[in-house]
């Protein structure tokens, strides 16, 4: 799979506070990555660096061999960054007018796709964006981002602000309309909103990338099971309906479904143990 983003030993700080320290990771095209992390873990900062809005003070970040902060037209035409706060879209234009203004700068923009997605989101394409509710504007922003058909799609908490039915529609739209060649990076702390959509999973902590693995590999190494009592060698357990949801090392090669919340909690509690588990092939 083509390597899209290469990050090496990246560090970033706001003033004196170091938000990212020596982060290294590689991301490939054709995948929908879920970027998980606690609040303040540096998810938004990472997205901004990849998007060219911020510059690291140490280390390297390249996207398709270009340095994002240079903001060359060739780089910009291949990416779309959708921030959490969508003030930029709340203008006096309608969704269609917004696209009319900006689509010429995205060479692969697909108008049919755009209109279809707007329809699936049940959005009034002719209403002034400023007059739409926050959730509606967010949907309009998502519609444009997906229809732009970029090589790199960066979404920061896209499901935040969407009502429950819209979250489902969002997942379906992402699954159906994102190109096979696109690398999508979605940051979230509402893991349930993106369940079944994101794969691989990246777990970010300020000091390190704790995990960057496909669900297939995670389910090879870890076992997620419902037990009536907590076994002694378990990595993480939480009480749930019917017993305890346990995360343990997969010694018996059982194939279980990865529970993202439990995975996250387990990783945050046992950073080194889990890191070592995945380090070995």
């Amino acid at each position: 799979m083509k390597r899209m983003i290469q990050i090496n030993d990246l560090s970033f700080k706001y003033g004196n506070k170091e938000v990212l320290s020596n982060i290294t990771m590689n991301l490939e095209a054709g995948k929908i990555y879920g970027l998980l992390g606690e609040n303040g873990a540096g998810k938004t900062t990472l997205l901004k660096i990849i998007g060219g809005l911020q510059k690291p003070y140490h280390g390297k970040c390249t996207v398709c061999d270009e340095v994002p902060f240079q903001r060359t037209p060739s780089f910009l035409s291949r990416i779309y960054y959708l921030p959490e706060e969508i003030d930029y879209i709340q203008t006096d234009y309608s969704a269609l007018q917004f696209a009319d203004l900006n689509a010429p700068f995205y060479p692969k923009f697909d108008w049919d796709k755009f209109k279809k997605i707007l329809a699936e989101f049940d959005l009034d394409a002719d209403k002034k964006l400023r007059k739409l509710s926050h959730g509606q504007s967010k949907k309009a922003a998502i519609s444009f981002a997906v229809a732009a058909n970029v090589d790199l799609l960066l979404l920061d908490e896209p499901s935040n602000g969407l009502d429950i039915p819209s979250k489902t529609i969002f997942r379906k739209i992402m699954a159906e309309y994102c190109l096979e060649t696109t690398c999508t990076l979605i940051s979230t702390h509402q893991v349930r909103d993106l369940e079944n959509l994101i794969d691989p999973i990246i777990i970010l902590d300020n000091r390190a990338v704790l995990m960057n693995e496909s669900l297939e590999r995670i389910s090879e190494k870890l076992c997620f099971s419902l037990e009536s009592s907590v076994p002694s060698d378990v990595l993480y357990a939480e009480p749930t309906l019917g017993g305890y949801l346990c995360v343990s090392q997969n010694r018996n090669q059982r194939e279980s479904r990865v529970n993202l919340e439990a995975l996250f909690n387990a990783t945050m509690q046992h950073k080194t143990a889990i890191h070592n588990l995945f380090k070995n092939a």
Partner: peptide
């Protein structure tokens, strides 16, 4: 794969698997 992924809201790579 894409249609099924879209119907179910599931990552196309999972459908492919």
């Amino acid at each position: 794969i894409r249609d099924l992924g879209g119907m179910l809201g599931v990552n196309p790579n999972t459908v492919m698997r």
